[in-house]
Simulated scan of single mutants.
Amino acid sequence: MRLTTLLPAALLLALVWATDLTAILGAHPWWSGKVVLIGAALGLALVWLASRRIAALPLTLTFLVATGLAGAAAVLGKRAFVASFGDNALAGQFWFFGWIATMAALAALVTALTLVIQRR
């Protein structure tokens, strides 16, 4: 995998971080930037490792599903955490780690999609 393959995902996540889009979409403002940085690093590493063994199209579909599931975990975790007035620690962890997983899956999805486009 070439470095140019990772560039679109890195630029997208840099834009998400710069505009604080995660806070606008529901992440806690105190750690909204952190989830993007952690998720970007994890997602780019994950897709780099996975692309060595799995073809680009199945990889893209897998990360598309993963992005949706991780986003759902973040949204549902936030709802449960807020409904418990901050007492449900597990829901808080789903909220926090759901955002990290969403950003990781998004970075991996964009990179896998870039691989599909480059190989056609």
Rank of each mutant, 00 (worst) to 15 (best):
M1Y: 14
R2D: 14
T5G: 04
T5V: 12
L7I: 14
L7A: 15
P8A: 03
L12F: 13
L12Y: 14
L13I: 07
L15I: 14
V16T: 01
V16G: 01
L21M: 12
L21G: 12
T22C: 08
I24K: 15
I24F: 15
L25R: 11
L25Q: 12
G26S: 00
A27W: 00
H28A: 08
P29W: 02
P29F: 00
W31P: 04
S32G: 07
K34D: 15
V35E: 02
V35H: 00
V36F: 01
V36K: 03
L37M: 13
L37T: 09
L42V: 05
A45Q: 12
L46Q: 10
L46I: 11
L46N: 13
V47M: 08
V47G: 08
L49S: 06
L49W: 11
L49G: 12
R52V: 09
R53I: 10
R53C: 04
I54M: 10
A55M: 10
A55P: 09
P58A: 09
P58R: 02
L59K: 04
T60V: 12
T62M: 11
T62Y: 06
F63G: 05
L64H: 03
L64D: 09
V65W: 08
L69F: 12
L69C: 09
A72P: 07
A72L: 15
A73L: 13
A73H: 07
A74F: 00
A74D: 03
A74R: 00
V75I: 14
V75S: 07
V75F: 15
L76M: 10
G77S: 02
G77Y: 01
K78I: 02
K78D: 06
R79N: 11
A80Y: 03
A80H: 06
V82H: 00
V82G: 00
S84P: 04
F85K: 05
G86L: 04
G86R: 03
A89C: 04
A89Y: 12
A89R: 15
G92Q: 02
Q93R: 14
F94M: 13
F94G: 13
F94W: 12
F94R: 15
W95D: 03
F96E: 08
W99G: 00
W99Q: 03
I100E: 00
A101D: 07
T102H: 13
T102G: 10
M103Y: 10
A105E: 01
A105L: 05
A108D: 02
V110A: 09
T111Y: 04
T111I: 05
A112H: 09
L113W: 15
T114E: 15
T114C: 10
T114S: 15
L115I: 06
L115E: 09
V116L: 08
I117C: 11
I117M: 15
R119V: 11
R119Y: 05
R120M: 14
